[in-house]
Amino acid sequence: MPEDPIAHSELAALTRRFEQVAEKSDREFGIIKSDLTAVRLQVGNLDQKVDRLEDRLEELGQKMDRNQAQIVALLTRLVGQDPNAG
């Protein structure tokens, strides 16, 4: 059976289109993969910042507790004293 030139040209055109789509898909997948890596890095950085913020908040809470205890101790000493004595 002789080869059909129209069929060959259609097959070549389909092959080119398939290769173009595959190439575009590969590029887009690479872009998505790169973006995903960037997002993972940002999430990791945010996670570290949240951990540091939690530590700072805990330190601040402890400092507030100490200051409050000092205020209570000072007020307790002042109770019953004559304000005019001095």
Rank of each mutant, 00 (worst) to 15 (best):
E3R: 15
E3C: 08
E3Q: 10
E3L: 09
P5K: 03
P5A: 07
I6K: 08
A7K: 09
H8E: 15
H8V: 14
S9M: 12
S9A: 09
E10C: 06
A13E: 12
A13G: 01
R16V: 02
R16E: 08
R17M: 12
R17L: 10
R17T: 15
Q20H: 10
Q20Y: 03
V21P: 03
V21A: 15
V21M: 12
V21I: 15
A22M: 14
A22G: 12
A22W: 13
E23P: 00
E23M: 08
K24M: 06
S25E: 14
S25N: 06
E28V: 04
G30F: 00
G30H: 01
I31S: 06
I32M: 08
K33I: 01
S34D: 06
D35A: 05
D35Q: 12
L36C: 11
L36D: 10
T37N: 10
T37Y: 06
A38I: 02
A38K: 13
V39W: 08
R40T: 05
L41N: 13
Q42K: 15
V43Q: 00
G44I: 02
L46N: 08
L46Y: 10
L46Q: 09
L46K: 11
L46M: 07
D47N: 07
D47H: 07
Q48D: 09
K49R: 14
V50R: 11
R52G: 02
R52W: 04
R52T: 05
E54R: 08
D55I: 13
R56S: 00
R56M: 07
E58Q: 13
E58G: 09
E59W: 05
E59K: 11
E59Q: 13
E59H: 10
L60E: 13
Q62H: 14
K63P: 00
K63H: 03
D65N: 13
R66N: 12
N67W: 07
Q68Y: 15
A69W: 07
Q70T: 01
Q70D: 02
I71Q: 03
I71F: 06
I71L: 06
V72R: 11
A73Y: 10
L74P: 00
L74H: 01
L75N: 09
L75V: 08
T76L: 03
T76D: 14
T76A: 05
R77F: 01
R77Q: 10
L78D: 05
L78P: 01
L78N: 09
L78A: 11
V79Y: 14
G80W: 00
Q81G: 04
Q81I: 12
D82L: 02
P83G: 01
P83S: 03
P83W: 01
N84H: 12
N84V: 01
A85F: 11
G86Q: 05
G86P: 06
